[in-house]
Design a protein around this nucleic acid. Structure first.
Length: 583
RNA sequence: GCACCCGUAGCUCAGUGGACUAGAGCAGCGGAUUUCUAAUCCGUCGGUCGCAGGUUCGAUCCCUGCCGGGUGCGCCA
């Protein structure tokens, strides 16, 4: 990576210039946002000057005098108040280009210290409607897992399905009284969900129904054979269908350890916490209170009410003996730490659950867990009216409906284009473009901002979308199909045209961009990068004929096409998006 | 009330470990095609980066306080 090399050269220059660096100071090099001054830049001299109370430009000059970057840069300059700007040489770019083409990771280095990372995402509930939030969790989690794995970490994906909870009281009651077996056979999830909704409504209206549901739940929890069988069947049917959905989306999990997997661990866990004094009994429930180790305003176990900080404990066992979400989460952490030796656990779960995770993480830490636990939060998907899309209101947007519609639109577009493809080919291309469009619509956005759900935007085939990126890829492949004769790609590269240079530079930056994604767990940085790359390639494509060129120029351009092809395929793959040779 | 997230162009959104004229897409307008796939490219129109202070040579970005929207806050998940 150019950025890493420049950083270490800068470091060497500080040493050579005998500038004493304060502790905690490391020179910082970034990709220039404005290429007029250079390709990479550093504000190290300015930051350091402030700390040393020196003149930034003079300090910058001292550094530049000792800086050895002749093999990389054609120009190094000091601009403005003391910025160091680096302009790469055409040779360095050409060399880098050949590395990208020869490397099976398109030039992305692996991390020095691989970690074991558990990624917890998707987590649909059995027999409860999937809400649109599952779209975000599923795509963001899958992409982050792919990126982490790609750069060398050991990644374990775990679908923590909601297969045990209060919804089963209603489901079992519904199963016994109003199940439509024919409908269940046809579409299990659909029938279970509509049954759940019907019973939910009935229970709200009629206290007696609610009581029956509760008693069915208690029977299930006590191990009643009939209820256990119904529960098992529900889980089996739902998982079967879910796997089909995941297959369509190209998403896989290493494990499906749902909530029920931890049932046996809950009672001992609570007992242990009571014994250790981490938990106490309060109003009949078992809870965890603040230990006063942090300031009240940062304490997840406190809440201010009328100028007074009051306890907001984490409940791990209800007064009636039942366990909760937090209890299961704590048991799950134990398992992941003990069995999988997780260094990190990532929870890709909506922002509203932030407080819950802060409590759970703090509790786990008190129990001695040192694994890094991160809540990778995301915002809500809003309806067209700008309000929350909520399942309770009845408005459910099925993930499958969205995907199907997207595939159909892509199919229509493929039909209109008519590239002389067979129906089977068109079907496959429509699937890739359709699912890719939906995934890209999600992943190209900052995960924290709420966004408005829009069919048109999600399914659009124009603008900053998956089809745009795929089209760039298709253009690279098309050239190689028409190429006659063999070419040794990496021989004799000569970068001269501005469009060639811009593309080579952009390609080189795939490495930095890929590594940056995990700094803040943001796949949209990769999406943005790929969009810029596709855009740069399209411009290059218009400006620089490839097949009509000759000699070293043709060779260079073909290498640029090949590198673009690889980076796009690899990068889209990290977003969970497949590529297609034609479209 | 307290905590967290968000507030950037008509619409939908990027961006920033503090710089130079704040970027895209869509929508609008004007161009480019006997094509290496136009699902493309080039140009143009469009913004006091919610408001007010502070730190700074310099703030959309950091700090404080407001305003607006959203979410969460003891026995749901």
């Amino acid at each position: 990576m150019f950025r890493a090399i420049l950083t270490s050269r800068l470091q060497a220059a500080f040493t050579a210039a005998r500038i004493e660096l304060p502790e905690s100071f490391t020179p910082n090099v970034v990709i220039a946002s404005d290429t007029r001054y250079g390709d990479y830049q550093s504000n190290a001299a300015m930051v350091l000057a402030k700390q040393l109370k020196a003149n930034p430009r003079a300090l910058a000059q001292q550094i530049v005098d000792q800086l050895d970057v002749a093999d990389l840069c054609e120009k190094t300059s000091i601009d403005g108040p003391g910025f160091l700007n680096f302009t790469l040489s055409a040779d360095a770019l050409a060399k880098r280009l050949s590395q990208i083409v020869l490397d099976d990771k398109a030039g992305v280095p692996v991390v020095e210290k691989p970690k074991t990372i558990v990624v917890d995402f998707s987590a649909p509930n059995i027999a409860k409607p999937m809400h649109v939030g599952h779209i975000r969790s599923t795509f963001i989690g899958d992409s982050l897992a792919r990126v982490a794995r790609f750069i060398g970490h050991k990644v374990i994906t775990d679908n923590h399905v909601g297969d045990w909870g209060t919804q089963f009281g209603m489901i079992i009651h519904g199963w016994k009284t109003q199940l439509d077996h024919a409908a269940l056979k046809k579409d299990a999830i659909h029938e279970l969900v509509s049954m759940y909704k019907a019973v939910n409504a009935a229970a709200k209206a009629d206290e007696a129904v609610m009581e029956t549901c509760k008693s069915e739940l208690v029977k299930l929890q006590q191990g009643n054979a009939q209820n256990l069988d119904i529960w098992k069947e529900c889980v089996r049917l739902t998982l079967e269908q879910l796997e089909k959905v995941y297959r369509t989306l190209g998403i896989t999990f290493d494990h499906y350890l749902g909530e029920s997997f931890y049932n046996e661990a809950l009672a001992p866990l609570v007992a242990d916490m009571l014994e250790k004094g981490i938990a106490t009994i309060s109003d009949g429930a078992t809870v965890v209170f603040s230990d006063g180790s942090v300031k009240p305003e940062n304490d997840p176990f406190l809440i201010k009410e009328k100028d007074e900080w009051k306890a907001a404990p984490c409940i791990i066992r209800k007064g009636d003996g039942g366990f909760l979400y937090a209890t299961t989460d704590l048991a799950t952490i134990d398992y992941r730490v003990k069995e999988w030796k997780a260094d990190e656990i990532w929870y890709v779960v909506g922002a509203p659950q932030q407080l819950h995770f802060r409590q759970v993480f703090a509790t786990a830490q008190r129990r001695g867990v040192t694994t890094i636990m991160t809540h990778i939060a995301f915002g809500s998907i809003l309806g067209p009216d700008g309000k929350m899309f909520k399942t309770r209101s009845g408005e459910t947007v099925g993930l499958l409906e969205v995907i199907d519609e997207a595939i159909e639109r892509a199919r229509t577009a493929a039909e209109e284009k008519d590239q002389g493809l067979s129906d089977t080919e068109k079907d496959e291309i429509a699937r890739i473009i359709g699912t890719g469009a939906v995934k890209y619509a999600e992943l190209s956005q900052n995960r924290l901002t709420d966004y408005k759900f829009s069919w048109d935007k999600m399914l659009s085939l124009q603008g900053n979308t998956a089809p745009y990126l795929l089209n760039a890829y298709v253009r690279t492949r098309s050239i190689f199909r028409k190429l006659e004769g063999a070419v040794t790609l990496t021989d004799d590269l000569t970068i001269t045209e501005p469009a060639e240079r811009a593309l080579a530079l952009k390609l080189a930056q795939f490495a930095e961009n890929t590594h940056d994604i995990l700094d803040d767990h943001r796949p949209n940085l990769l999406a943005n990068y790929l969009y810029e790359l596709a855009n740069t390639y399209h411009s290059f494509y218009e400006a620089c004929p490839v097949l009509r060129a000759e000699g070293a120029v043709k060779n260079t351009r073909l290498t640029l096409c090949e590198a673009t092809s690889r980076v796009l395929k690899t990068g889209l793959g990290l977003l969970g998006i497949q590529t297609t040779e034609r479209m």
